[in-house]
């Protein structure tokens, strides 16, 4: 589904990603972990197409298409969903109206007729039930005045509505208390269908107790320096990142 080959990127001349290689197959859950400043958020931003970053090398293909060539909206329409670390507030625009626009833009791109208002509302109701969303949230302005937990739940709700093929979760756990974390994770788990893939970016292991990854990768200095299964995350939790750093430095010396 997603194939990243030797991806390099920089911002304002500073190299952040320095040769990332990663293959995500349908239905897989990959966790990308790493210390602060390792390049985790940059990876998600580059995949979603944020203009601040310059890709200086490498390739990213998504279902056989060159992802890096596409505009951010086309990536989304192809099925890449980024759950933002800091979801943006848009005053005066309700979540309902926002999602209706997004879904119909995607349908237009795929050559489908726009969804009618009644069909859309029915669809939204179903997803709201599934995600246990509070009805009041969808009629309020998008993310405006939402608590941190509400914003993150709204991200997962949007994911359910837009039905992406690949979801990139950028530190979705940051700023969440344990109850909110459980709710958000439960939502994500409901969306797992064996086809849909997830890249979960996080600093801490605790999210991975709820969203159990198939693979865990450690990002350090812009590269994936270690990969393993879910047990790697536990090991990182217990031992911290210093031993990985030491390993990398040692490797560089020999």
């Amino acid at each position: 589904m997603l194939e990243i080959k030797d991806l390099k990127a920089e911002i304002e001349g500073k190299i952040i990603l320095n040769g990332i290689n990663l293959v995500v197959k349908p239905g897989e859950v990959h966790a990308v972990m790493g210390p602060n400043g390792a390049g985790k958020s940059t990876l998600s931003a580059v995949l979603a197409g944020r203009a601040d970053y310059t890709v200086t090398g490498g390739e990213v293909s998504f279902n056989g298409k060159d992802l890096l060539e596409m505009s951010p909206e086309d990536r989304a329409r192809e099925g890449v969903f980024l759950a933002f670390q800091y979801p943006v507030e848009i005053p005066g625009v309700s979540t309902t109206n926002f999602l209706k626009t997004a879904i119909n833009e995607k349908r237009k791109y795929l050559g489908l007729e726009p969804m009618e208002a009644t069909a859309f509302l029915k669809f939204m109701r179903e997803k709201m039930e599934l995600m246990e969303m509070d009805k009041a949230l969808t009629s309020r302005s998008l993310n405006e005045g939402f608590s941190g937990g509400e914003k993150k739940r709204n991200e997962v709700f949007q994911m359910a509505m837009l039905e992406p093929k690949l979801t990139i979760m950028d530190e979705t756990d940051s700023g969440l208390d344990i109850d909110a974390l459980r709710l958000v994770s439960a939502g994500v788990n409901k969306l797992k269908d064996g086809e849909r893939s997830f890249v979960v970016i996080t600093h801490y292991q605790r999210l991975l107790d709820y969203i159990v990854p198939d693979f865990v990768h450690v990002l350090y200095k812009g590269r994936i320096v270690k990969s393993g299964d879910a047990s790697l995350a536990k090991e990182l939790e217990a031992k911290g990142y210093d031993w990985i750093k030491a390993e990398v430095e040692q490797g560089a010396n020999t």
Binding site: N97, F98, A102
Partner: peptide, 22 residues
Amino acid sequence: FYCNQRGIGTEEAIGLIVNGFC
């Protein structure tokens, strides 16, 4: 960018934001 990431093009995004503002 947030709108873009949800598949909404820049023009529509501006329209959406302006209409929200008004």
